[in-house]
Design a protein around this nucleic acid. Structure first.
Lengths: 343, 343
DNA sequence: CTGAAAGCGCTAACAG
DNA sequence: CTGTTAGCGCTTTCAG
């Protein structure tokens, strides 16, 4: 029985025969790199159409050592930030003539992505979830693999990196809350292996300390994994305190949404009794039920930058490793009072 | 300058030389299909490790006509159903030894996925977003391409298809609402090119008609695209009527969430003044702010089934086209009163 | 401008 | 068990 997956049976030789040219001329017409006589070209094109010929990508890849595939490793797709990022990356990559291959990152996926580079399945990889203890990643980088880090970064690692200013984002939130008169400020943070989270927390804490209003350790909770539920639970703990915070900064939106609902579940009014601030500006942040004040990252710009750096790296251009850090914005909604953000 | 993407410079010949065996023996050790002497095998393995050798996947694919890649076409990732499905599909595919390549489906992506099959970039494709007017898909199917449809299906098309019982889902919702005493039942539906939507709507309408309580055309709105916002707006139109519905069935959760918030924005109490039912049971449906009654599809089972059918098809097994339709469940939450669902 | 020829790195007969 | 041999389908010199 014929198995389709053996690939289209028609090859460039078939085209050559039919167009009465040599196989190499067929190739020349298709790649378009070399001049070909008008007559011959037209016969080839006609034959291609008539036979429904599609060049075999594997064979081409083998000759050119280029697959046209770019791998993307994303963290748990359950965080809506990543689908959003994925959508943007996919569009940009397609625009640049590449296909996107996705790994949904647990450690196995990270390894799989690095394997794919070494096996020439992909020409390069964009990692959104790097951490300093990813051995496979580090190994690949040592071998000079074309990898760029986006979103999460790892200081000092030998590769291009693109992030937004998480330190500054944390600072902006702290300043905003403090200047708006909040003084019992709480924090829900997460695992500190992600640079994003670490930076947001550090920027936030340092600024409050500098302003003379450090976070009470009672008012700080760390979740082990980011989800609505963990956010809900963490906030519940904070809100069950006799003197609960008058504002809570959550290091990402998903937990902030959980926190918002924890307040609702207790009948705590937001923003009257409690302010909540998130981070990422995922789509749900703007929903009527949440109206979450948050930090918006310039995802599209980050994606474009990452792709540009990766393509340069793949071409062997680019000497040192670049670390691009893009600015982000405080988006004020009614989960906090509508005071103007100050510089 | 050395460009990494030229691929690892070490080939099976290098290994052969180093292990003092022929290149084919190296291949035999690596593929593991043939017996190899203990001595030789060990020398090969050692050489592989010492040189950090990785077999070139393109070359292998060219010989075997198998890439190990499965393409997945998903509709707008903005609908959280699709990331959920993607996650499940990815895990199952990896478990079966395949990699997942994702296209984020507008018409261009659909075409790209079909191109990928013809160019032997992927061994097969899983489509979540088929519609009857997808020309590239139809063309590919005519050529007997290994494609399976999941979620959305197209009656009469020559391919394997997996869906859940959308007709029955619509019916269940109708019965539940009617038996719970709702009589001014509204409907927010969507574009009818998707089989899922069509079936849900038909099942719902027919059942209500059979029960003698057809939908008032005033109480039916169709959105052109599925999003929180379109759901919010559509529900707003319904709720601004003098006599607004006492229950609204939304053909998917995303618009149901919008509808829920439209009620909240007007101070309409749910479920006291209005019941809302969605479809899909995406994660947010269970969030405290929504507590949405909805239909849960057996995504994991659907994914497994689709993959099984696809693998059979790729192996050339399987004679006729199968159409698997799996049952789904009504999940009752407090966006409707907590009456028991009846059979 | 075009054909002939040489492989890319690997797998899979085919003979030992 | 293992080496030799013949390509997979394509791109790219190298000669005309």
């Amino acid at each position: 029985m014929h198995t389709y997956s053996k690939g289209s049976p028609v090859t460039s030789h078939d085209i050559a025969r039919r167009a009465r040219v040599s196989q190499s001329t067929v190739s020349r017409v298709l790649t378009g790199n070399t001049k070909v006589g008008k007559e011959a070209r037209e016969r080839v094109i006609a034959a291609v159409r008539e036979l429904g010929y599609r060049p075999n990508a594997m064979a081409r890849a083998m000759r050119t050592s280029q697959t046209g595939n770019i791998g993307v490793v994303v963290s748990r797709l359950a965080n809506p930030l990543y689908p959003e990022l994925l959508q943007i990356l996919g569009k940009s990559l397609n625009g640049a003539g590449f296909r996107m291959v996705v790994w949904n990152s647990d450690e196995l996926d990270e390894k799989a992505a690095m394997d794919a580079i070494h096996e020439s399945r992909v020409d390069g990889v964009i990692m959104t979830t790097a951490t300093a203890d990813s051995m496979p990643l580090y190994e690949a980088l040592r071998l000079n693999a074309p990898v760029v880090l986006i979103n999460r970064v790892v200081d000092g690692w030998p590769c291009d990196q693109v992030s937004s200013d998480n330190l500054g984002g944390g600072r902006k939130v702290a300043e905003y809350l403090f200047k708006s008169g909040r003084r019992r400020i709480g924090l829900i943070t997460g695992p500190d292996d992600a640079s994003t989270i670490r930076d947001r927390e550090v920027g936030f804490r340092r600024t409050l300390e500098a302003l003379g209003s450090p976070i009470d350790s009672m008012h700080c909770v760390a979740v082990d994994v980011f989800s609505y539920k963990t956010g809900f639970d963490a906030a519940s703990r904070l809100l069950d305190l006799a003197e609960y915070p008058d504002a809570i900064f959550c290091v990402n939106d998903v937990i902030a949404l959980g926190a918002r609902d924890a307040a609702r579940a207790r009948g705590i009014e937001v923003p009257a009794d409690l302010w909540i601030v998130g981070y990422d500006d995922i789509e749900m942040a703007s929903w009527h039920s949440f109206e979450l004040t948050t930090i918006r990252q310039p995802l599209a710009l980050m994606a474009e930058t990452a792709i540009r750096l990766l393509l340069q790296r793949m071409r062997g251009i680019g000497e040192g490793w670049q670390h691009v850090c893009l600015p982000n914005d405080l988006v004020i909604r009614s989960s906090t009072a509508r005071y103007a953000a100050s510089g």
